[in-house]
Design a protein around this nucleic acid. Structure first.
Length: 433
DNA sequence: TCTGGGGTCCTAGGACCC
DNA sequence: TCTGGGGTCCTAGGACCC
């Protein structure tokens, strides 16, 4: 725990309110006061809710088929997830944040940590938080909340308060110790960042029900009964920063691409089409991060939520002799692994491809373009081919792909409530009448 | 009829070595 | 009847996050 120190660091956590739902509302002013929900891939379960939908008691993660009656009765507007739109809106928010703070850690699609250390020499933390909030709203149109504190975990907590208590106006400065303790006394322990369902059950059994009680628990006990992770969380609640700034964003250790199918798949050839597509996508991500994969994993499975039907689930991993970022190679391997685990007679619901043992160029053995299967010249050519494919696909998503990924796409996602690509497609530009 | 898709980190336990 | 004491490395699985 040597990297945990009491410092004068200050973090702000900026988090968009009901991000996906807010993105949908932004382009539909007619829905201003209407409850809105956004669904996961395949229109499966609820992944975002507007404040009106939350007020109706719609729960996060609930399968949409369980709330059909609510949707009808309360005229809830339903949207399929539109990641093209959300990704574009996210970039706009982050660009604004980067213009306002010396250091920004993008933590997820809708939240980022800002380094506010020393900024109070110029402006109060609270006033700065309000500037951030107003700027993003003016320039992008999305509402955010800001939590400010000496550690990331406390900044998360401050953000929670900023969202929960309206009178804060969406900004909470939690740099004051007395204020930290007052808030923690009111916050249930399961709202603490890093405490999930399992941990909170165990903590409650020990009589620890609030964030403050967790902060005041003996550290050695926490380490012994749980792990260093929870010990670190407790330190962070006490203002000791254990999660600081990385010098460089850590390179990825694995890349996954998997999807549930829009409808069950039975045949090997339909599975092959899906797997080839996922392998292609995963390899694109690999090249984007300028990495090479040393291991490949393929899995297929039936739908575990239907216990009445025959179940089958299998994954297989294989080492790649030379780490590669070549789509052709990875698709080929994916297909041969898939064939070895496929069993006929099942309704498959999902497949996926994971690349791991990732290395960058410096981690490669010297025979960069010489593998056992391709001569140097051939490998150089396929490298250039990959670059060309990536360039084309960047302009027009998935125009060029491996032949095996074409054909009748039995696995295509269900997206029955998709909104237009307002910001990324000329044909979908919103018009003002 | 219908239940997402990514990721990270940590720990326990087995295999193996001396 | 007795049955070492460390190490390291790897993997599977659990917990968390959004």
């Amino acid at each position: 725990m040597s990297d945990c120190r009491k410092t004068n660091q200050v973090f702000a956590l900026v988090d968009c309110n009901n991000f996906y739902a807010s993105c949908e509302k932004l382009f539909r002013p007619d829905l201003r006061d209407t409850p809105v929900i956004v669904l996961s891939n395949n229109d499966g379960c609820v992944v975002a809710r507007s404040k009106e939908a939350k007020a109706l008691g719609i729960k996060m993660g609930v399968p949409v088929h369980l709330i059909k009656t609510d949707i009808r009765r309360h005229r809830i507007q339903v949207f399929s997830s539109n990641y093209t739109l959300y990704g574009d809106m996210s970039r706009r928010v982050m660009t604004n944040l980067e213009a306002m703070a010396p250091r920004v850690d993008i933590y997820s699609i809708d939240e980022a940590f800002l380094d506010l250390t020393g900024i109070d020499q110029v402006i109060s933390f609270d006033a700065f938080g309000r500037q951030v909030k107003d700027t993003v709203y003016r320039n992008v149109g999305l509402p955010v909340c800001v939590g400010i504190a000496p550690t990331r975990t406390l900044a998360k907590l401050a953000n929670y308060a900023a969202k929960k208590y309206l009178k804060t106006g969406g900004v909470v400065d939690l740099t004051d110790l007395a204020r930290q303790r007052r808030l923690m006394a009111r916050v249930p322990v399961d709202e603490v960042w890093g405490v999930g369902r399992k941990l909170s059950t165990k903590l409650q059994a020990m009589g620890i029900t609030t964030a403050l009680q967790l902060a005041d628990t003996d550290l050695a006990t926490l380490r012994k009964r749980f792990s260093v992770v929870l010990e670190r969380t407790a330190r962070e609640l006490n203002g000791i920063s254990c999660l600081s700034w990385e010098d460089a964003p850590a390179p990825k250790k694995q890349i996954m691409c998997s999807r549930s199918f829009g409808q069950p798949i039975r045949t090997l050839s339909d599975l092959e089409a899906a797997a080839a597509q996922y392998a292609t996508r995963a390899t694109e991500k690999l090249r984007k991060g300028q990495q090479y994969a040393g291991e490949l994993m393929v899995f297929i499975r039936t739908n575990p939520f239907r216990p009445g039907v025959p179940q089958y689930s299998k994954s297989i991993s294989v080492r790649l002799v030379n780490p590669t970022q070549n789509s052709r190679m990875i698709v080929q391997k994916t297909l041969s692994q898939l064939r070895s685990i496929y069993r006929a007679g099942y309704d498959y619901a999902k497949a996926g491809v994971m690349l791991s043992e990732l290395v960058d160029e410096t981690g490669l053995q010297e025979d960069l373009f010489e593998s056992s299967c391709t001569g140097e010249e051939d490998a150089g050519r396929s490298y250039r081919l990959m670059a060309v494919i990536d360039e084309i696909n960047q302009k027009s998503r998935a125009s060029v792909f491996m032949a095996r990924a074409a054909g009748p796409a039995a696995h295509t996602m269900r997206r029955g409530h998709l909104s237009p690509a307002y910001t990324t497609d000329w044909n979908d530009l919103p018009t003002v009448r």
